[in-house]
Simulated assay, not measured.
Amino acid sequence: MAVIGGKWKPLILFHLGHDARRNGNLRPAIGNVSGKMLIQQLKELEADGIVDRFDFKEIRLTYIPECFRVCQKHKVS
């Protein structure tokens, strides 16, 4: 529980839901979080294996919940 505890991580995970979101789209959805704090929390979630960071070779980065990526691999068409 300590991995997803705190003020911002539950909100981040709620807004990620089962969909990938860019950092710029995530911050306004959460509200009063500073850009620095959001990035720090996302990096911690990434280090703990809860979210993955994808760099599409653009200026923006996209974060996706780990469970969504794993579930998509096992989805039957």
Rank of each mutant, 00 (worst) to 15 (best):
F56A: 13
G35R: 10
I64E: 02
V70R: 14
G6N: 11
K43P: 01
D19G: 09
E66Y: 10
N25K: 15
E58I: 04
D19V: 12
R60W: 03
P65A: 08
L42N: 05
R69A: 12
K9F: 04
M1Q: 07
Q72K: 14
I59E: 04
G24K: 15
R60K: 14
I12E: 00
I30V: 12
L42R: 05
Q72H: 05
L16R: 06
Y63S: 09
D55M: 03
L42H: 07
H18F: 10
S77D: 03
L13A: 07
A29G: 00
R60C: 05
E58D: 09
E66P: 00
I39P: 01
G35W: 00
Y63H: 11
H74G: 01
I59R: 15
D52T: 10
V76L: 13
V70P: 00
V51P: 02
S34Q: 09
A29V: 09
K36H: 10
S77A: 12
M37S: 14
H74N: 05
K57H: 10
R22N: 10
I50E: 05
K43S: 12
F54S: 12
E58A: 12
R60D: 10
H18W: 02
N23S: 07
G17C: 05
G5N: 11
V33Q: 01
G24H: 13
S34T: 15
V70W: 01
I4L: 03
A47L: 03
Q41P: 02
R69L: 14
A2K: 11
L38C: 12
E66Q: 15
K57A: 13
E44Q: 11
R22H: 13
F56E: 09
N25M: 14
A20H: 09
L42P: 03
I50C: 05
L26F: 00
I50S: 05
F14E: 12
R60F: 08
N25C: 13
I39F: 00
R53P: 00
S77F: 09
F14K: 15
P28G: 11
R27W: 01
K7A: 11
I50D: 03
H74E: 04
A2Q: 08
A29R: 15
L45Y: 05
